[in-house]
Computed example of a mutant assay.
Amino acid sequence: MTVALLVNPAARAGAHTGAAERAAERLRTHGVRTTILSGGSAHESSELLRTAIELGAAAVVVAGGDGTVNLALQEVAGTGIPLGIIPSGTGNDLATTLGLRELDPVSAADAVAAGATRDIDLARVTRDDGSRAYFATVLASGFDSRVNDRANTMRWPRGDSRYTLAVLVEFMTLSGLPYEVELALVDGTIRRVTGDLLMATIGNGTSYGGGIPICPDADPADGELDVTLIRPAGRLRLLRLLPRVYKGTHTGIDEVSTFRVRSVRLASPGVTAYADGDPIGTLPLTVDVAPRALRVFVPR
């Protein structure tokens, strides 16, 4: 097997600090031919990966977090080319979903070499200009996308606590935003939600931001997407809500609505949506499910 191992040198938690080299060395001991790809930008990384696939790479492995994994998704979605993850980024939420988060680079490489795979769904975003992109975990808009804006500009602290601090800072200026949401429910009916929302999130996976279970019941292999909408409330009440969000027990609160959908359209003026931790487009956006679009390596 020939593997293209993608590293993004701009990854926030330093995916290039040795994890890729250790994983590549381990793969080679298993007889897996491994080429490390490291672009100077997201665009260059994508081009390098695309070329490697055209030249016959049988599998793709990513050393990094969800943002770097997302670059690879765009190239391997729907192809049947399996994707492996060496979790070494800030969030690692897809790695958590796949049971890889706690693996060190050597153990994660062993999972690739062992060859066990499963097929999971992806969420597919269609922008108003017709362009498309995929994501694997959660799309965030509203309060949580503002948290991402802030977290991405913070130099300290590193790791998951960066998101926690960004949440607390953004909470101080919390306000609702006008939304129009159109939900194509799994029973075939259409439901529309309009009015102010604090946040609107779409989950193919359960968590974002390094393990925050915003869509706690999402299953990336059920052919459906989970939507979580949170309406404005008093700041003190919302402050009490935050710990429940981190525990995944928030879905029973009056201000929280959840839906199972085949597709959803989100619209709100000037709001940038984030998916897999990085910007994916400005609302309005339409998101639908691409069933079993990604083959991933998993531990045996």
Rank of each mutant, 00 (worst) to 15 (best):
V3S: 11
L5N: 06
L6W: 06
N8K: 10
A10P: 03
T17V: 10
E25Y: 03
R28D: 03
H30I: 13
G31I: 11
T35Y: 00
G39P: 12
S41P: 10
S41M: 05
A42I: 09
A42R: 14
E44G: 00
E47C: 13
R50N: 06
I53T: 10
A57D: 05
A59V: 12
V61R: 09
L73M: 07
G78F: 11
P82L: 04
G89Q: 03
T90V: 11
T90E: 01
D93Q: 11
L94G: 10
G99T: 01
R101I: 10
R101V: 13
R101M: 10
G115P: 08
G115R: 13
T117P: 12
L122I: 02
R124W: 01
T126H: 00
R127T: 04
R127S: 12
R127D: 05
D129I: 08
A136L: 02
T137R: 02
T137F: 01
G142R: 03
G142P: 10
P157W: 02
R158D: 12
D160I: 14
E170L: 10
M172R: 15
S175M: 09
E182V: 15
L183T: 09
L185G: 01
V186P: 05
D187E: 07
D187F: 06
D187G: 04
D187Y: 06
G188Y: 02
R192A: 14
A200G: 13
G203N: 11
G203H: 03
G211A: 14
I214W: 03
I214S: 08
D219I: 05
G223A: 07
V227S: 03
I230V: 15
I230D: 03
I230E: 05
P232W: 00
G234D: 10
L238Q: 12
L239V: 07
L241T: 15
L241E: 11
V245Y: 13
V245I: 15
Y246N: 07
G248W: 03
H250D: 06
G252Q: 13
I253C: 07
D254P: 05
S257F: 09
T258D: 00
S263D: 02
V264Y: 02
T272G: 01
T272D: 03
G277I: 09
P279H: 02
G281H: 01
P284S: 05
T286R: 14
V287D: 04
D288P: 06
R292N: 13
A293F: 05
R300T: 14
